[in-house]
Simulated assay, not measured.
Amino acid sequence: MPASAPSLDVVAVGNAIVDVIAKSDDAFLAEHALTKGGMQLIDAEMAESLYGEMDAAIESSGGSAANTLAGLAALGKKCGFIGQVRDDQLGTVFAHDIRALGIRFDTVALTGDAPTARCLILVTPDAQRTMNTFLGASQYLPAKALDVDLIQSAAILYLEGYLWDPEQPRAAMRAAIDAARAAGRKVAFTLSDNFVIDRHRADFIDLIDQGFIDILFSNEGEIQSLAEIDDFEAAVASIGARVPVLVSTRSEKGAVAVVAGVRYEAPAAAVETIVDTTGAGDLFASGFLAAHIDGRSVEDCLALGAAAAAEVIAHYGARPEADLKLIEARLFA
């Protein structure tokens, strides 16, 4: 029986995190033995200690997949989010913020000891962001928390690689893939970070080779790590031959997509001053998916992805501040 027409554009499963973004410098990173430009998982004790030493910060609901949905919502798409918070103050903040964007969020909050997750983001003067993530309640998303009807109501299921690491949400994401597939929906997956790939490369390759991923998002380092090939073009060719749509961003070098075996390339959008690269990949995915949903060409998908990424790196924070619909209108005028 053919699946009914989707009522939502994208439903994402991801970490429900409150972002805390502050200015920093290389000396602070060195003092705390933090790897510049990377992401590390931290425990509750370090989260409290590091938070206490950070400069004045911007605090908002975040997480990679949630940021992508924020961009999609700003581009007029109908979205839903599945992610785990606790019934604490930050959990209430997260839920209010994401719903205020027009994104459906119905996951029942946990009760118990694990607090809502937070990501402490340190931005150095060169606009590099160093992320320190306490996963808290987000790593306890069980398969039973999934809203199967919500997943099957969306044209695309978007999965956040970061959430593949903990055991419970990994099982939930596998169940979400099964639900989307049963309804004939597409599955998009973002690799998120090299450390996730190093731990779960075999899983990701298996998902690709079984045909469970329709759209794969990566950056330059991630695609090389996944393919275990040091050369970018060779890595793209290897993985691009195995997935219907591969997108790989390259910062100031632009982005590459391989669709049905055909390679496309687009330059990065111009940015007067790069302030904070937090969320650049997330918003690139927003723009690409929005144009893809609209049936635009691959070139247009790449262009809107680049434009959305350029907007978010021109200010602090991982959520768009300018009108993305106006940017889209100008781009395709």
Rank of each mutant, 00 (worst) to 15 (best):
D149P: 00
C79K: 08
A100W: 00
P125S: 05
Q139N: 12
D147L: 03
F105Q: 11
K144G: 00
R99Q: 15
Q168N: 05
L150F: 04
L110P: 00
A127M: 10
A155K: 14
G91Q: 11
D88H: 07
V93L: 15
G80V: 09
D88K: 10
Q89F: 10
W164I: 07
V123L: 01
L101V: 04
A100P: 00
L159R: 07
G80Q: 09
T124E: 14
H96E: 15
G102F: 09
L159D: 05
G136E: 04
A172C: 03
A154N: 02
D147A: 04
L150S: 05
F134H: 15
Q128V: 10
A172D: 09
D126K: 12
T130C: 03
L150W: 05
V123Q: 06
A155C: 01
V93Q: 15
Y140G: 04
A155S: 15
A154I: 02
R86N: 15
F81M: 03
P142D: 14
A109K: 14
L141M: 04
I151V: 14
Q139T: 09
P115G: 12
V93N: 11
E160M: 01
D106H: 10
P169V: 10
R86M: 12
K144S: 15
D126Y: 12
A155M: 08
G80A: 13
P115V: 11
G136C: 02
Y158T: 02
I121T: 14
E167W: 01
K144Y: 00
M173G: 06
A172Q: 12
Q168V: 00
C119K: 10
G91F: 06
R118Y: 01
I103P: 01
L101M: 15
M131F: 08
E160Y: 09
D113E: 15
T92C: 08
H96T: 15
R86C: 13
I156D: 02
M173F: 04
I103H: 06
F94P: 03
V93C: 09
F105T: 10
I151T: 08
N132V: 05
R129P: 02
R104V: 14
G102K: 13
